[in-house]
Structure formats: structure tokens, C-alpha cells
Amino acid sequence: MSRILSFLATFLLLFVVFIIASASISPMDIVLGLITSVIVAAFSSTLLIKEAPTKVFNVIRWAWAIAYFFYYFLIIEPKCHWDVVKRILHPKMPIKPGIVRVPYDVKSDYTITAVACSITNTPGTVVVDVDEEGKKYYVHWIDVKATDPKVCHEMISKTFEKYLRRVFD
């Protein structure tokens, strides 16, 4: 049962992406999309979704994902861009780089990856390594304000975790 559901979820996501990318609902595009999505989903559904495929059909998770998308692109990213742009253009270049520990408190693989990608996508912080046993990221930070792991978690990854836990976990 769960294998059928995960196949269906992968197939639906692929088909929607195909239709959006081809931007037409002519019969040929629909048939081509159906065939390619069925083939790709048959091969990759067990790799992509390992646990609880019902999460894909949960509307509240999608709403949180869209809210996170807008919050991320309208507020978080411009702030970090402005911060790094100021550092680049400043004549004295006020940087204090270093690699700090940032603990995380999420369970599923998708959430760990999404939080790491969010941290890397904001200028100023790059995830260098992940320690899955110790549950922490090693983050290269352009302006080390604190070396204590809890303060770093507060300043770098708290908002990402708050939203992404509701999407993936």
C-alpha cells in the first residue's frame, strides 16, 4: 500500500513539473508527460520516498512550504544579501570568518537537507560538514558573533528549523 502511494506521489509531482515546464495542455504534451513520469516514478519512487508517503498529500504542509518560500525570498534573503554586500564594498572589509558548530533538532533526512540548503543559500553562512551522530552542522560564518553552539543556533538556523519542521518532519 505504501509503495503504491509513494509511486503515486512521485508520479504526480513529476507530472505537474512536466506540465508547468512545457506550459501547454495539448494532448501530445499530456501523453508524453504521462509516459515519462510513469517510467521515472517506477524507477525512483522507492529511492525518493522511504517513509510515510501520506505527507505529500497533506495540504497544511504545502501551505507552510509556500509561506516559507515567500518569507525566505522576501525577508531573509534580502537582509543577508545587504549584510554581505556592505562587507564587500566597505573599504576596510570588516570580516571575522570562522567555522562554528550549529546543533540541529530535526529528524527526517529531508529536513536535515533542507535546513542545510537554506543555510548555504543565504550569503554569509556555508555548511562545510554535517555530523549526523552528534546532530550538528559545521558552518563557515563570515562574521563570527558567538562561538557558543546554542547562541549560534539561535542566530543562524532557528527560523529555518521552525518552518521546515512543519513542512517535512
Binding site: E77, V84, N121, T122, V126, I142
Partner: peptide, 10 residues
């Protein structure tokens, strides 16, 4: 890498 991220996202 941080400067490169400004070039990718922004």
C-alpha cells in the same frame, strides 16, 4: 564562497 552565493541567488 559567500561572494559567489551573492552572485548565484541575487
Amino acid at each position: 564562497i559567500h561572494a559567489a552565493t551573492v552572485g548565484v541567488i541575487g
